[in-house]
Amino acid sequence: MKARESALRLKRFAADEKARKVADLEHMIREFDGMASDLDRQIKAEEERTGVRDPAHFSYSTFAKSASQRRDNLRASADGLKAKLEAALKERDDALEQVARADSPAGHDQLRNRRRAERTPASVLR
């Protein structure tokens, strides 16, 4: 019983760790999106202040250029994190499913039957 409890505890820890990773990724994506929105507002304010809205114009604000580059980089990073988030969500769901299977009575029976089969010599099974 002790080995099963420690295995279950280990699976729960792994599932919790994956859930924390998902939460961290979601938080980072929200932060990046918020910073990109702030930069958007700053760019629009700078364009209003200078009266030049065309980035190709020779007198376009250097602050607006650099802020738009930072905004684009943040959005690209957020997109990359979204891809990682999808993978992390799948890993978390798989880990939670494993915990549920291991914690359910049917999971105990499957584990017990698997252990019996492993202990039974192959010649007896034939």
Rank of each mutant, 00 (worst) to 15 (best):
M28A: 09
I29N: 01
I29P: 04
R30Y: 05
R30G: 07
R30H: 04
F32S: 07
F32Q: 09
F32R: 13
D33S: 03
D33M: 10
G34I: 00
G34W: 01
M35G: 02
A36K: 12
L39K: 10
D40W: 09
Q42S: 12
A45L: 10
E46L: 03
E47L: 10
E48W: 02
E48M: 09
T50D: 09
G51Y: 11
V52I: 14
P55W: 01
S59P: 01
T62W: 08
A64Y: 04
K65M: 03
S66L: 03
A67L: 00
Q69T: 09
R70G: 00
R70N: 08
R71W: 05
D72F: 07
D72R: 10
N73V: 10
R75Q: 14
R75N: 09
R75G: 00
A76D: 12
A76T: 09
A78K: 08
G80T: 02
L81Y: 11
L81D: 10
L81E: 03
A83D: 07
A83F: 00
A83P: 00
L85D: 05
E86Q: 13
E86V: 12
E86D: 11
A87V: 15
L89T: 08
D94C: 02
A100M: 05
A100V: 03
A102Y: 13
D103E: 15
S104E: 08
P105Y: 07
P105G: 05
P105D: 09
R112F: 11
R112Q: 06
